[in-house]
Amino acid sequence: MQRRHRKTHAYMWKVLAIFLPAMLIAALAIRQHGPTEKSAVQLEKPAAEAEAPAPKADE
């Protein structure tokens, strides 16, 4: 009597031997890392500050 499921077993393990490491590698690849540039950049100053004239040097 053929050892039942031997072929299923073998097939499953060939698939898992590829799938499991691939899953781990993919998950590590998508991991987020810190930003390469500054994480806070002021794009525009507030309107009031932008309108106010720059202070003179002797003030």
């Binding site: 930003p35 994480s39 806070a40 794009l43 507030p46």
Partner: peptide, 11 residues
């Protein structure tokens, strides 16, 4: 409220 301008933030 005191406006602090427009910012691009990462977080």
């Amino acid at each position: 409220s005191e406006p602090l301008g427009r910012w691009r933030l990462i977080g």
